[in-house]
Design a protein around this nucleic acid. Structure first.
Lengths: 239, 239
DNA sequence: TTTCTACATCTGATGTATCAAAATTGCAAT
DNA sequence: ATTGCAATTTTGATACATCAGATGTAGAAA
């Protein structure tokens, strides 16, 4: 029962997936402006395919919340609103502490080792961009420890979207070096199996992170009053 | 101004939406068995449309997590696994208390009134089915108070899926009459603006709800060991 | 006879080209 | 300036073609 001479494991390039990934990346990097209208036909031309896979891609993007589909009208990439930023940060505040608490219950020694390895990456001075990447991996690793696939998927989604929303607001060249202690303490709590302490640390961490980001947005002129609106007037998204 | 003689206000029946809703309902009511394979062609015949809207519907269902798409292979309705039940209940444990806490911050008097009206429905003796409906409306009303659209959407999704997962396990004719106090206390805390108390009550509530459901599942013979598996062998979902 | 492998077939998803319907846009007329 | 109509644009749907994977059959080896 050796597995044959396998010509590599089916290197499928499911076309619609290609377009989905490509568009997703462009949207996330804001190479396609928030609020912009997407024309299925021209996209189909650009990627040299028909419109059907484009439709599939649009559906997937809509599922991610990256585009909204107005029936018989058009595909719009989600605008950046204060509401959206708030929702995401608030959602992290709901998920993060819970994930930390569950991680304290379920994390294996191997997983704790992985967490420590990630934390160590904070030692080097990092720009905000890569720091966010590290933070992303760290928190998603914790999410995995929670033994809840939904939480993992949701966490990934939140980080992705947050990255996009902040791309407008953050100067990615800024250097920072910090947080290492906080993260170490969190891993310690997880290793000790102290769920409440882990949750508390994560709560504080997310709160400070949230305040940092909000303040930064306000400093940079977004969030002037209590409304940021980059992109089309958000059609009240209906029911 | 006046909306024309309108043949009814554009009773848009966006075909793909029709099929999506129809299939969704069938899947949720387990009229289509968990783990079953869906044939796009026959579905297209059944609803007298082409395959394209069926594909769109499948994408949406996949986004809801109700079907999994194996590329070039088939559409399968999600099997019922212990993991799935666990994930959903755990997710509620993460979201619920946070929503309650935020509701305590943001709820308007009108919203509190609405919540009290819903709680009052518990006074009459209800079977489990309608009780779940009431519980659903109650918790979603709270989610709305949190001012976080994601939390609202996620809550709705969780309740929907939970309903499906439990349809196998619950005897919907059982009568129960309870919980009214717990819910009243929760609304009181929200009205008083006491977020921590609201969150604590919700935590306890979800915990007892969870235990009730798990115990019920075990009593009924599901969850024999620590695995329930209705439907196809869950292809280990990769990655 | 049994089993394993190689081949052929068949099913069903994926993609293309085309068409129809609806909405937005621009123009013209009042 | 506003309203109504027509033309363009773009989505939504259909029918058809293609292609990968699953299934079934037959033949060879044990």
């Amino acid at each position: 029962m050796i597995v044959a001479p396998g010509p590599a494991a089916t290197a499928h390039v499911p076309a619609s997936e290609r377009i989905y990934l490509a568009l997703r990346q462009e949207i996330m990097r804001c190479e396609i402006a928030p609020g912009a209208t997407l024309d299925a036909t021209s996209i189909a031309r650009r990627y040299e395919v028909s419109k059907t896979p484009v439709r599939d891609a649009m559906q997937k993007l809509a599922a991610d919340g990256l585009v909204t589909i107005l029936p018989r009208s058009g595909y719009h990439v989600a605008p950046i609103t204060f509401q959206a930023v708030h929702d995401i940060l608030d959602m992290r505040a709901a998920i993060g502490p819970h994930a930390a608490r569950q991680a304290a219950r379920y994390a294996t020694p191997a997983e704790v080792t992985l967490l420590r390895r990630i934390v160590r990456e904070y030692d080097a001075p990092l720009d905000i961009g890569t720091m966010q990447q590290v933070a992303r991996r760290f928190h998603i690793a914790i999410a995995r420890c929670s033994r809840n696939r939904r939480i993992v998927a949701l966490s990934e989604n939140l980080f992705d979207e947050l990255e996009r929303l902040l791309r407008f607001a953050i100067d990615f060249t800024v250097k920072t070096g910090e947080h290492s202690d906080e993260h170490t303490a969190l891993v310690d709590a997880i290793e000790a199996g102290d769920g409440e302490r882990a949750a508390a640390i994560e709560t504080a961490h997310i709160r400070s992170s949230r305040e940092f980001l909000i303040e930064r947005l306000m400093t940079l002129g977004y969030l002037s009053e209590n409304e940021i609106q980059i992109g089309s007037a958000s059609r009240s998204a209906g029911e």
